[in-house]
Write a protein that binds this DNA or RNA. Structure first.
Length: 801
DNA sequence: CTAGGGTTAG
């Protein structure tokens, strides 16, 4: 009996000793991070083979280890086998589920815990779970539940709930209320709590800038600061765009942390100060501070954004040289940044190679390569990628929608936008932007209006990008007033907004108003960019303001330091040629700093066509044939030039040449809204049910115009080059069909608005002037990107069409 | 067992 007792007690101490050994072993394994988890798992394996059944805190430790090595399912399996799991085991799992994003599972466990057992730590884990997953409201709700359970919040609680508040807080008052809560808890001098409080104030400084000073006062008054206090403050300034203040603080740090360097670099990158970012990077190296993957990622993206590809490749080479790791082993973000670097450098295939070699990919990687294809116009490949992707987020949809929109596939873009909504994904303002741009391309005014209404309902009415897109959409659909209304009501504007409005005015023939707006832009201290000048030059051109246009062109480099590119030169040539100033144009072409390309020659040819400058026109056409032999526009311009001068034979000759060379004419189409229905017309549209009626009407109009003496300067008005026998009928261009249809079907007094996908031809332009006179109606026609308003025999563009 | 900063895609 006694022996038996002795034996069992020695067995007991034996088990205890074994347990202690295992506990000590696990203790040794754990603090060394993920690499030691495999070690810990073999300790567990040893337990199993030697018949030792872990219980209590050893089992909890094991559960934690499996959670940390991302094998939550097995951890759960161990957990489920415990008859009465304690609060520590529960909290471990709750936290693991939260980190993984499985909030429902976490909450189930939490709710399954008897109230009497719940402690502050388990609440903390749950609150953190919500805050990590962006659900600030639930975190705050739980915080108040916790106080109902009479549990005292500790510093963990406060830091978590404060960081949750950062997500949802939207005014100063809430911020101060929480400050009081913190003070009442008596933890207001704990460093981590103060840090979190500071970041709350920093966030609120977005609403009221005085709060930045409150944050700074808290910071300055801290009895001791840790590395985080500094970085919170520095990033606070960075996020507000106050890089000087950030830099001052950074320079004042006695001991500069890696993190602070990275914060400064990413701040510079984000605000476009690439050179400063690079300079910091160099200084880091000269001061012997170790780069980490954050540094590399920021600096690579700086190079990608600023187009400094040579520097980017140098950094890539540097990583390869110093890190002694094979490329695919770079951390995920570094590889992602490399993908971006390469596609932004126009090397999609190289980007794809980096992408293909990566050992692990996340959504960012997929989105990066998708953007690469979209931005290089390789929509078909992008489409395949989009369907194959393992997951999608808002950005994915947005990239794809704007990809379609910007590559002339507006309908597909809108379809995707709808599919996104059907799949229950709430569009962000950028997704709306893409869809609105799709409407702009399609000239779908009614659809655009509906999207505008929806946008407002979603609460995005102050979005900058959506506002800019709306202006463009309304302008491209002929609704300048609506565009102007958006312009006036936008709370935030950038140069794009100004450019869009200036363009809207210029495109509609309001050249003088466009220039007025440009002057206002300058007075308000907004710096013009390359696009602004393109827009302004076009406006001058359409309004015939040659002198002013030349002056603006000249001021580009002299005042604003923007050297004119090829497109600017093309606009200048266009401006001069439309005004018939050919010797000046020739002079510009001969003295420009680079070889003139297609856009310049095309502008010259178009000007020659207007003024019948045959010799120069033929020269320009020859250059264009060399540069892009398959471009249909050149043939059409040239044949129109001949036809305009009555040289029908030559005109037909050019058409023949075009056919012989197998050049396809881009199919033109026009459309018009009558009531809520959109009618689309194609060239020689015999399919349209009412087209016979339209033909007869056109014929009648032609006769009437002749009878009233509106004989055009050239016979061309009543003709098509290819059907010159229809002496009195207006020829069947899609825009003429559409306008005639509108004149027939729209009530008297209503303006006829027609959209044409391509440029309208001279024939139609002249015809519409007469038509507007004969029928006493206003006719508005979109010509590619701009608009002509025909009224009483005149056009808003003068003759600079 | 629980907290807080810096990175990547438009």
């Amino acid at each position: 009996m006694k022996n038996a007792a002795l034996a069992s007690s020695s067995l007991f101490t034996d088990v205890r000793a074994t347990a202690n050994r295992y506990a000590a072993l696990l203790q040794l394994c754990c603090p060394q991070g993920p690499k030691s988890y495999s070690l810990a798992r073999s300790v567990h394996a040893h337990m199993i083979t030697s018949g030792f059944r872990p219980r209590g805190h050893i089992l909890n430790r094991l559960i934690d280890i499996y959670c940390k090595s991302r094998n939550i399912a097995y951890a759960r399996h161990l957990f489920d086998a415990i008859p009465k799991p304690d609060i520590v085991a529960r909290t471990t799992l709750i936290s693991a589920y939260s980190v993984e994003g499985s909030l429902k599972l976490a909450r189930e466990l939490f709710d399954g815990t008897p109230v009497s057992v719940r402690d502050t730590v388990s609440y903390n884990a749950m609150i953190t779970g919500y805050s990590h997953n962006g659900d600030g409201h639930s975190a705050v709700k739980l915080f108040s539940d916790m106080r109902c359970d009479c549990l005292r919040p500790d510093n963990f609680t406060l830091t978590s709930v404060l960081s949750a508040l950062v997500l949802i807080v939207d005014d100063e008052l809430q911020c101060q209320q929480f400050h009081c809560t913190v003070v009442k808890s008596g933890l207001e001098s704990v460093v981590s709590v103060l840090n979190a409080l500071i970041s709350l104030y920093v966030k609120c400084a977005g609403f009221s800038s005085s709060l930045m000073n409150s944050a700074r006062r808290l910071f300055d008054a801290m009895p001791e600061k840790d590395e985080l206090s500094w970085t919170t403050m520095i990033t606070g300034y960075v996020k507000r765009g106050d890089l000087d203040a950030a830099r001052k603080l950074f320079d004042g740090m006695t001991e500069k942390l890696e993190v602070a360097w990275n914060a400064m670099i990413s701040g510079y990158v984000h605000h476009g100060f690439t050179l400063e970012a690079l300079e910091m990077f160099k200084r880091m190296r000269s001061e012997g501070i170790q780069f980490d993957e954050f540094t590399y990622t920021s600096i690579l993206s700086a190079c990608a954004n600023a187009g400094l590809f040579r520097h980017g490749k140098q950094v890539h080479a540097y990583i390869l040289r110093t890190e002694a790791k094979p490329a695919p082993d770079f951390s995920l973000p570094v590889n992602n940044a490399l993908v971006t670097l390469y596609w932004k450098n126009g090397k999609v295939d190289q980007a794809r190679r980096v992408f293909d070699r990566m050992l692990e990919r996340d959504l960012v990687s997929w989105n990066a390569i998708l953007s690469g294809y979209v931005n290089s116009g390789r929509i078909d490949e992008a489409k395949i990628l989009f369907e194959e992707m393992p997951g999608r987020n808002l950005l994915t949809w947005t990239v794809m929608i704007s990809g379609f929109a910007q590559n002339g596939l507006g309908e597909e873009g809108l379809r995707l936008f709808n599919r996104m909504r059907i799949e229950g994904i709430e569009p962000c303002d950028y997704a709306f932007t893409g869809a609105i741009i799709a409407c702009a391309g399609l000239g779908a005014l009614e659809h655009g209006r509906q999207l505008h209404a929806l946008l407002v309902r979603f609460g995005y009415d102050s979005s900058l990008s959506a506002g800019n897109a709306l202006m463009t959409m309304y302008a491209r659909c002929g609704a300048v007033e609506a565009a102007h209304h958006v312009f006036l009501t936008m709370p935030y504007m950038d140069s794009v907004s100004w450019n869009a409005m200036i363009a809207a005015l210029g495109q509609h023939g309001h050249g003088a108003q466009a220039l007025e707006l440009f002057d206002r832009m300058l007075k308000e201290g907004i710096l013009p960019d390359r696009i602004t000048f393109l827009t302004v030059l076009s406006a001058c051109s359409h309004a015939g303001l040659v002198k002013q246009g030349c002056a603006y062109f000249e001021s580009m480099d002299r005042i604003y330091g923007i050297s004119p590119g090829e497109d600017h030169y093309a606009r200048l040539i266009d401006l001069l040629c439309r005004a018939g100033k050919f010797s000046e144009a020739k002079n510009v072409i001969e003295t420009m700093p680079f070889q003139p390309g297609a856009p310049v020659w095309e502008a010259l040819l178009a000007g020659c066509r207007i003024h019948g400058n045959m010799d120069l026109g033929i020269q320009a056409a020859e250059r264009l044939f060399e540069l892009m032999p398959k471009h249909d526009g050149t043939y059409i311009l040239l044949s129109n030039m001949y036809a305009n001068m009555g040289q029908w034979g030559n005109a037909a000759e050019v058409r023949k040449l075009m056919r012989d060379r197998g050049v396809k004419k881009e199919p033109g189409c026009s459309w018009i809204e009558v009531g809520s229905k959109v009618h689309v017309f194609l060239v020689d549209d015999t399919m349209h049910p009412e087209v016979q009626e339209v033909y007869r009407y056109l014929e009648k109009l032609g006769l009437e115009m002749r009878k009233l003496g509106y004989i055009p300067d050239t016979k061309y008005v009543l003709h098509d080059v290819e059907s010159e026998h229809k002496e009195y009928a207006l020829s069947t261009h899609s825009e003429k069909l559409a306008v005639a249809f509108g004149l027939l079907k729209l009530p008297r007094g209503a303006t006829v608005r027609v959209l044409k996908n391509l440029r309208i031809c001279g024939d139609c332009h002249t015809a519409f002037k007469f038509m507007s006179k004969v029928v006493e109606r206003e006719i508005v026609v979109r010509d590619g990107k701009r608009f002509h308003h025909f009224r009483d025999g005149e056009c808003s563009c003068g003759n600079y069409w």
